[in-house]
C-alpha cells in the first residue's frame, strides 16, 4: 500500500520526466491507484483556481474576436462599427494635431533662433512649448472587465494601478460580487464615482487611500 508521500513523488516524477513513462504506464498507474488519480484531479482543480484568479483581470478584445469570428463564419458584409470609425477619426485628429504642433514648433524655433542672439532665455521656453503636445498625448488602454469579481479584488486592482492604499471597513461589502468595466483612462475619482453607483457600495478616497465603508 502506497503512502501519500510516495504518491506525491510518483506524480511529480511523471510530470517532470514524462519521457521515462509510456502512455500505457501512466494510464495504468492512474487506473490502478484511485488515490493517485484523486491527487492529480485535486491538483488540476488547484491549477484551475489559480487560472481563474489570474483571468479575473485578463483583457480580451471582444470587438476583435467578433470581427475574426464574423469574417470566418458569417456571410454578413463587414461594416466598420461606429466605435472603430470614431477611433480612426481620433487617430487622424491626433496626427493632424501632432503635425500642426510640429510645424508650429519648427516655426517657433526659427523665430527663436533669430532672436537668440538678443535673448538666450527664449531657448528654455521653446523647449517647454515644443515638448508639451507629446507630454499631454495619452494612449487609451483597453478597459478591464471584472465579471462576477469581489469588490475587494476590484478595489485592490484599482488601488495598485493608482499607487494608493486601500482599507476595507465593511466586511459585507468586500464579498460583494460585481460586473464592472474599468476604463483605465478614467481618473481615480471618476472610477470611485462609477463604483458608488452600485447599490450597497460606499467608497471614498481619503489620504491617498481607497476606503470601502
Amino acid at each position: 500500500m502506497k503512502t501519500d508521500e510516495q504518491r506525491i513523488e510518483q506524480l511529480m516524477e511523471m510530470q517532470e520526466h514524462p519521457e521515462r513513462f509510456t502512455e500505457e504506464q501512466i494510464r495504468q498507474a492512474l487506473a490502478l491507484d484511485p488515490e493517485l488519480k484523486a491527487m492529480m484531479e485535486q491538483l488540476a482543480f488547484a491549477k484551475r483556481a489559480l487560472k481563474y484568479e489570474e483571468t479575473q483581470v485578463a483583457n480580451t478584445s471582444v470587438d476583435k474576436e467578433w470581427e475574426k469570428f464574423a469574417a470566418a463564419h458569417t456571410k454578413q458584409p463587414r461594416i466598420l462599427p461606429f466605435k472603430r470609425l470614431s477611433k480612426i477619426a481620433a487617430i487622424f485628429i491626433g496626427v493632424i494635431f501632432f503635425a500642426g504642433a510640429t510645424i508650429a514648433a519648427l516655426r517657433h524655433t526659427k523665430v527663436n533662433s533669430e532672436q537668440q542672439t538678443e535673448n538666450n532665455t527664449h531657448a528654455s521656453d521653446l523647449k517647454h512649448q515644443t515638448s508639451s503636445p507629446t507630454e499631454t498625448d495619452t494612449i487609451l488602454s483597453e478597459p478591464v472587465v471584472f465579471d462576477n469579481v469581489t469588490l475587494e479584488k476590484i478595489v485592490q486592482n484599482i488601488a495598485t494601478a493608482n499607487h494608493v492604499g486601500m482599507e476595507l471597513r465593511n466586511a459585507k461589502a468586500r464579498q460583494l460580487r460585481l460586473h464592472f468595466v474599468w476604463k483605465q483612462e478614467d481618473s481615480l475619482l471618476r472610477v470611485v464615482e462609477k463604483l458608488n453607483n452600485f447599490e450597497a457600495v460606499n467608497i471614498v478616497v481619503e489620504d491617498d487611500k481607497i476606503i470601502v465603508k
Binding site: M14, K37, E41, L43, A44, E53
Partner: peptide, 23 residues
C-alpha cells in the same frame, strides 16, 4: 498529466458554486 488537464476536475458545477470553491 504534465499540464493537469483533467476532465474529472471540471464537473458540470454551476460557475458561481465553482468560483466559491475556488475562492
Amino acid at each position: 498529466i504534465i499540464r493537469l488537464l483533467s476532465e474529472e476536475a471540471c464537473l458540470p458545477t454551476p460557475t458561481d458554486i465553482e468560483h466559491r470553491l475556488m475562492d
